[in-house]
Nucleic acid binder design. Structure first.
Length: 390
DNA sequence: CGTCCACAGGAATGACGGGCGG
DNA sequence: CCGCCCGTCATTCCTGTGGACG
């Protein structure tokens, strides 16, 4: 039931498998294949299809004795341009230090080693959107041009993006060379999700251990959330675990509902625990503001509370500029909800709300050895403010 | 219809810990 | 050990801006 498991068949993706397969097939005859760009939201099977096709191609390549190699890289996990090139180096058998060299140097080592190894390399870059939005498209620029400088080897790219608007961030030349072929993955609908779950459940669950309604509910919930198969599988897996813990023999709808809460709860707790000190303090500031006043907090108010509790801890506060980006980060993690609004005459700011249960914050942060004692603290500036307002 | 608030958020720069090759 | 480069976090300085108010 884990999403890193690659099943033998991918229901409702036969068409995409065929498309990708047809595109990469020429490498078996020693020709470079077209670069492909694959779009689709999370959990639509992009990664699974790509890995599926590449692994089948690998066995075929062995059969035909074709000099083909693959390198799958998840850009979001790998994290930086440097580390992507470092991975590419590894894939052609060159080990590079994980830091210390210039990006250009690493790229050059990769290029040289690739060229001398007489192969066709297929590079699959998953979640490139995350890398491009952060670091720009220089990585792709280098990679799309690499064939011009190779004499004995060839390279093809498979770009995978969760964001359909990615081309807006790309240099048009890079984009056109990257998307010689384009494939869009539609979200799964509830019916398709049901089939996917059914397939997996056959392997993972005992016969009759899964009620039909529970399965349908998982499919329906995930379908409502942009047809995310990963989400559907998670729900079903956790629902199974819940049922097991209660020592029931059948997974019911109720267990799925519980799994939904459970997943959300875990997500928030994990995220909260792993925040840096200052991010925790920001969350705590919002928490205190909400307690004192029902209206939504804005950046200025948060900064005021934040600087005060920093003083209380004996930590020097960060600047408001920095706090602003921290708030944005927390927003994209789904811990806070921040949106810019204009109050006309009274300026422009972000309205910020907690996106999780208050008791969770208290539970998690009060057991933190540094900020723990601040969960019950009453910021002075808050009482002063409310008095002024009234 | 212009002003002006209270910030947003981009760009440049710097400090820092880690790691290289020589 | 030195000089160099890395990524990350943070600061400083900056220009931009939606819309209520006058």
């Amino acid at each position: 039931m884990r999403h890193d498991y690659l099943p033998d068949t991918l229901p409702h993706r036969e068409e995409q498998i065929r498309q990708v397969g047809e595109i990469v097939a020429p490498v078996l005859k020693g020709a470079r294949c077209s670069n492909v760009f694959i779009y689709g939201k999370t959990g639509t099977g992009k990664t699974a299809v790509t890995k599926y096709v590449l692994s089948h191609l690998e066995t075929k390549a062995k059969e035909f004795n074709a000099p083909v190699k693959f390198c799958y890289i998840n850009c979001r996990v790998v994290g930086s341009e440097y580390r992507v090139f470092a991975r590419l180096c590894q894939s052609v058998g060159v080990s590079v230090p994980f830091t210390g060299l210039s990006v250009g140097e690493v790229f050059e080592r990769f290029r040289a080693s690739l060229d001398s190894s007489h192969i066709i390399l297929i590079v699959a870059l998953d979640e490139i959107d995350s890398l491009i939005k952060m670091r720009g498209d220089s990585l792709l620029y280098e990679l799309t041009r690499i064939n011009e400088t190779l004499t004995k080897s060839k390279t093809s790219l498979i770009g995978i993006s969760n964001d359909l608007r990615l081309k807006e961030f790309l240099d048009p030349r890079v984009f056109s060379s990257l998307s010689e072929e384009e494939i869009v993955f539609r979200p799964y609908d509830a019916y398709e999700l049901r089939n996917i779950l059914l397939d997996r459940a056959k392997i993972a669950f005992f016969k009759d251990a899964l009620s039909d309604s529970a399965l349908s509910l998982c499919a329906a919930l995930a379908a409502a959330e942009h047809g995310d198969a990963r989400r559907a599988l998670d729900l079903l897996r956790v629902a199974g675990e819940v049922a097991e813990r209660k020592s029931t023999t059948i997974v019911s709808e109720e267990h799925v509902r519980e799994a939904e809460k459970h997943i959300e709860h875990n997500r928030v707790v994990e995220a909260l625990k792993n925040l840096t000190l200052h991010s925790k303090l920001v969350v705590l500031s919002v928490y205190h503001l909400k307690k004192a006043d029902a209206h939504q907090a804005n950046t200025g108010e948060i900064y005021e509370v934040y600087t005060e509790i920093c003083g209380e801890l004996g930590v020097s506060p960060l600047t408001q500029r920095r706090l602003s980006t921290l708030v944005n980060e927390l927003d994209s993690m789904g811990l806070l909800n921040a949106r810019v609004i204009s109050m006309g005459r009274y300026g422009r700011t972000k309205k910020i709300r907690l996106e999780m249960a208050r008791c969770l914050i208290k539970d998690v942060l009060s057991s933190d050895d540094r900020v723990g004692r601040l969960t019950d603290y009453d910021p002075r500036c808050l009482s002063k403010n409310t008095r002024n307002k009234s």
